[in-house]
Amino acid sequence: MPLYVRDVAAPGAKLRVLVVGAIHGDELSSAALAFQWIHLASTENLQQPQPVHWRFLPVLNPDGALARPPRRVNASGVDLNRNFPTPNWESDASSYWEKRTRKDPRRWPGPKPLSEPESRFLHEQMQSFKPNLIVSIHAPYGVLDFDGPSVPPSRLGRLYLDQVGIFPGSLGNYGGVHKGVPVVTIELPNAMRTPLDAEMRQMWIDLQRWMGERMARDGAAVGR
């Protein structure tokens, strides 16, 4: 199934931000937030404190999202957020799945790293777009997570920072820890209920504020 990509770039933008929604197909609110942010970026990009080139992948797992009922995994039964090539994936991912999740089929990491077309596509986007920041939207834990360099945002809207650790093959582990690209992980409170428009806008405003304060200050490899 085709993957939808939308670019919104302000003139002269050197800061590149990749926003990913619905990497788990049963977290439909994450896709809704990504689509709402496309609207905000399209209508307010020129008003932002710094020019940004946004790239949105609002539904990375369309097969899971369109299943009835929606499924966390893709059409091959793989948890895409355990399929990225972190070091020692072959031993760590399978061991974690077998021992920590007791072979939970909703968390199967797949037969090998990047075995799935969706994870390969996102990996290719990371290589070609070279984002300075990745925002990965999930649900339903109602917290804010962060991996990688820079000081994390303390809150986005009503979500407060609560770093939950890293997992073998996860995007935060791969991008933030091993590639050095800051990964902000948003965990919305409800997987099926979209936040209010005002809440989605406040998270957008808080993200912009943090980007202006921290990423410019830290350099964030802007313009590399």
Results as ranks from 00 to 15, higher is better:
Leu133Val: 01
Leu207Tyr: 02
Arg214Tyr: 06
Asn81Asp: 15
Pro153Val: 01
Met211Glu: 07
Gln36Pro: 00
Arg71Ala: 04
Pro113Asn: 05
Trp204Asn: 09
His39Asn: 12
Arg158Pro: 02
Lys103Met: 10
Arg102Cys: 05
Arg209His: 14
Met1Asn: 04
Leu15Thr: 06
Val222Gln: 08
Ser136Arg: 08
Ala75Ile: 08
His138Ala: 03
Leu46Trp: 10
Tyr174Trp: 15
Ala32Val: 04
Met1Asp: 11
Ser136Trp: 03
Ser42Ile: 00
Ala191Leu: 01
Asn83Thr: 00
Ser91Gln: 12
Leu66Phe: 08
Val183Cys: 09
Phe129Ala: 05
Ile134Arg: 06
Pro2Tyr: 14
Glu118Pro: 02
Tyr4Ser: 10
Pro2Asp: 15
Trp54Val: 02
Pro152Gln: 08
Ser154Val: 03
Pro51Leu: 10
Phe146Glu: 03
Gly219Trp: 04
Asp162Glu: 15
Met1Ala: 12
Arg155Met: 07
Pro195Tyr: 11
Phe129Ser: 09
Gly223Ser: 13
Ser119Asp: 04
Trp97Gln: 09
Leu3Arg: 11
Ala13Thr: 05
Pro131Tyr: 10
Arg16Gln: 13
His178Met: 05
His123Ile: 00
Ala31Ser: 15
Glu199Gly: 01
Asp197Ala: 15
Ala10Gly: 01
Gly148Phe: 07
Tyr4Arg: 12
Trp108Lys: 04
Val78Arg: 14
Tyr96Ala: 10
Pro140Ala: 14
Arg120Gln: 13
Glu27Trp: 09
Arg209Gln: 12
Tyr96Trp: 15
Leu57His: 04
Ile134Gln: 11
Ser128Lys: 10
Thr86Ser: 13
His123Gly: 02
Val177Gln: 14
Glu44Ser: 09
Leu161Tyr: 14
Lys103Phe: 10
Leu18Val: 00
Glu90Cys: 00
Val8Leu: 13
Pro117Gly: 08
Ala9Arg: 12
Pro51Val: 02
Pro58Gly: 01
Ile23His: 11
Trp210Pro: 01
Ser95Cys: 10
Leu66His: 12
Asp206Cys: 04
Ser94Asp: 11
Ala220Lys: 04
Asn190Phe: 08
Pro149Tyr: 11
Met126Ala: 06
Lys112Gly: 03
His24Lys: 07
Pro87Met: 09
Ala65Arg: 15
Arg6Trp: 07
Asp7Ala: 11
Leu60Ile: 00
Ser115Pro: 06
Arg217Gly: 08
Glu90Lys: 10
Ser95Thr: 09
Ser150Trp: 13
Trp89Ser: 08
Tyr96Lys: 04
Gly12Trp: 13
Asn190Thr: 01
Arg100Asn: 11
Ser95Lys: 14
Ala216Cys: 02
Val5Leu: 14
Lys179Thr: 00
Arg100Asp: 15
Glu118His: 06
Pro87Leu: 06
Val17Arg: 11
Leu46Ile: 00
Arg68Thr: 09
